[in-house]
Design a protein around this nucleic acid. Structure first.
Lengths: 165, 165
DNA sequence: TTAATTCCTATTAATTCAATAGGAATTATA
DNA sequence: TATAATTCCTATTGAATTAATAGGAATTAA
């Protein structure tokens, strides 16, 4: 018997190599939520954020703790405790948050400037054309991510909402 | 007994979440090597490339095979066989190679345009300020990576070498 | 005292990554 | 036609990472 078979190839990319980890994404969502919904900066419970932003409760717990230890959030313990922004939303940017959860913002270790590392296999870094390209990518990326503060993101949302209606 | 202990925290970032996989990096190095050293496009053996570029032999084998299946390399089998570029170095760019090994070039699934996927936790994509930021990052990144061809990278190397001496 | 919360450590299951192993198939040439 | 040198292909592996979950200690308001 000769014929065709249909092969379904499930290309799955929901989170691929170069994308933000779920931790980073959840962190950003939680922060934007706090910037938008908690201008008075009073303690908001984990479960509140978890439900509003569709983030697994226990996972979020660990994330918020990291953000607190990094000086981005402040917390109050005990009954009626919770989390709130430690700084002004205009002073918290995407680059900082991403670094905290996903490490250096650079496609190659040799173009990172905070956590620079040589590329093992590389023979001459100074004249490496590959490095040259990716260092350009890094510069452009950081230009955007450093300016993308929570305040900026909230503003963008509002402006998008206006455009639509 | 009471005292201090010294804790060495090994911050290891050689390859972090957002960086290229070794496969992608090795692939790029191999391709640039071929563009630079094999202008006549005759078969070059895996072991030759492996030694020149410090890439594990067997690992490189798999990588070159992928590049061939993607139509980027051509191969000849048997004695004196090997690999060579299938297209002009000016027609092979970084975006294509990266996608092949590391998937979509996008920090969020919802900003990828080839392999777009909704962000599970997202409630309103149209007015999402986060998406707005990362879509900007993607645009700028692709602008660079689409233009970064093998020919361009070789040119950059030469120009860097001139600057130094 | 108690109810509600954050804080902290440990565990886990699934997946991906980086590589290796071994042999089949192919080809040039002596 | 035999042989040496190569690519082609599938399977396996060990380590690391990711995305959570579990359970209970500590803290706080009332």
């Amino acid at each position: 018997m000769i014929g065709w078979i249909f092969v379904f190839s499930p290309i799955e990319f929901y989170s691929s190599a170069l994308m933000l980890s779920r931790k980073a994404k959840y962190a950003i969502n939680a922060l934007v939520f706090l910037a938008r919904e908690n201008k008075k900066r009073e303690p908001i419970q984990i479960s509140k954020i978890s439900e509003s932003e569709n983030i697994p409760r226990k996972f979020l717990e660990a994330i918020l703790l990291d953000l607190r230890n990094a000086g981005i959030l402040q917390s109050r313990k005990g009954k009626f405790g919770g989390y709130y922004l430690q700084k002004d939303p205009a002073d918290i940017n995407m680059a900082t948050v991403m670094r905290l959860f996903d490490g250096p913002i650079a496609l190659l270790p040799c173009v990172a400037s905070n956590n620079y590392e040589r590329c093992e296999e590389c023979t001459d870094e100074e004249t490496c054309g590959i490095r040259d390209v990716f260092s350009e990518v890094r510069m452009e990326t950081l230009k955007i991510l450093n300016n993308a503060t929570l305040a900026d993101i909230v503003k963008r949302s509002k402006s998008l909402a206006k455009k639509i209606k």
